[in-house]
Design a protein around this nucleic acid. Sequence first.
DNA 1: ACGAAGGGCGCG
DNA 2: AAAGCGCGCCCTTCGT
Length: 586
Amino acid sequence: MVTAPPPPASASPTWCVLGREAGGRTRLLVLDGDGRSLGTEEVAADGLPALVARREEEHAPRWVWSDAAAWYPRLLAAGVRLERCHDLRLIHRILCHSELVEDASSLRAATEWETPLDPHEPVRDQGAALFELDAAAPRSGAVPSETEETWAEFTRQRAAIDGAHDPARLRLLVAAESAGALIAAELQAAGIPWDVAEHDRILTVALGPRPSPGTPPSKMVAAGAEVRAALGDPLVPLESPPKLLRALHRAGIDVPSTSQWELQQHEHPAIEPLLRYKKMSRLLTANGWTWLDEWVHEGRYRPVYVPGGVVTGRWASSGGGALQIPRQLRPALRADPGWRLISADVSQLEPRVLAAMSADAAMIAAGAGKDLYSGIVEARIVQTRQEAKIGVLGALYGGTTGDSGRVVPRLRRNFPAAMALVDGAAATGERGGTVTTWLGRSSPAPGEDWTRAQRTANQPDVAAGQQEAARRSARERGRFTRNFVVQGTAAEWALSWMAALRLQLARFEEVPESAAAAASGPVFSLRAHLAFFLHDEVIVHAPAEQAEAAATAIRDSADAAGRLLFPGSAIDFPLDLGISERSAEK
DNA sequence: ACGAAGGGCGCG
DNA sequence: AAAGCGCGCCCTTCGT
């Protein structure tokens, strides 16, 4: 262990920077609040969890590392949980593009921080890759150590944030994004408690008993036979859209594609069994027995979450389709014996975020304490809740046709500030400009092809078709930027919500080991903990006696997130919350 | 032969 | 119902 000269008495450790060094050793760099070094330590890989645990207990620093995804799972496996971190790779992406950052040139030059982590690649190999990349292209002679590279990037990021147009907002974003990185790792480690027998029961009811491998389930075979009989075509392959489409045409069903909603427009004996077949086929291939075998072990489904995986800042997932679990399978989410699932989703998160961002008093009032869509009906802006929903979604997504095209102008009259915000974002996007979320995540610049097409279309004597294509792609980009500001800010709200919730739950008392010993799955935590996240919804897995407290924490955290992002705003974020042994069917 | 692209559909 | 945004994953077909 190497120790620097003793620090001045006033300095308190604030940051702990981790980096890997030669021989599989890890170096820890302790910094004070101004970024001055207070000392270093070095340990072999197997000593890291103990070292980190000791520092966390002593002064709960903010851990600075290349990625939570690379470091945290091993610590979690050793039972070490951390409060806060700074995820350099995730923050690098944000800062490089944020309009709030005055000068991102030095960050952009540090290209080794650009590469997104492959969520499936073994962590060890990826760490080595970062190191070797530097070794292959050394600056001015000596190869810097990974710890020094990490510190250097951290210094660049701090400078970018401190010099930003609105550092306070950017700091919130950095904290929320980094907390998300911790949460994603914890969610994967915890897993979703999954009832394999219930899942199998649902599959059996829908498809028939599990068939032998390579054989379709009985109910699919039967439905397929009905379709082929009704089409008078005993061989048509139902899984091949082009061939199925031709068979439908031959049978006199004039559809432009084989999608469900096109088929539903038509009356024909083949339609009903075909729709039934498609439903079954989807369930079988996406979440059938094969999925169960592959993804659920020891009563836990462990999806791979990818924080910041979507340009807007939403999470993505990789493998297992964590964010697309069909509602049909929700009953398979089941708490351990003696435990409960507390499911909570935010009602109309995106419209509420828009109302708050734009400080649109009428829209905020429409949502106050209740269903926003009903509030719009009560304000006599539209006749029905359905109309309100279609109109609001049209406003967020840029709908211009059909019902949404008819309702949006009414919203524009009644919610002028909210509509001006999204209309402005759309106009900026159509011009090729950049838009930015509430906390400072900016949309990507348009591609070269897009810009060239727009330039070309503006010149005289350009073919009408080319002009129309350019206008269409301009409108498409406008719809993207229109939605970006709202979807991205909603993602920031949701991260803030979870970050606050996670810290509250971490302060819950542990329950006696015996209560958890009865659990059907491996124990992640002896207290209430997050088990699932889906854009505007969380599920907490909690000992029964902590369920009410967890529900309160979920609500309090939602309020806290609202105040954090929109201080002084009257906006509220009501939750739809339920406590049960199974995740409620909606 | 193999990866990219596209249809289709699940989620918010 | 989709429409209008953002995804991931399965399957087949297309292109090299």
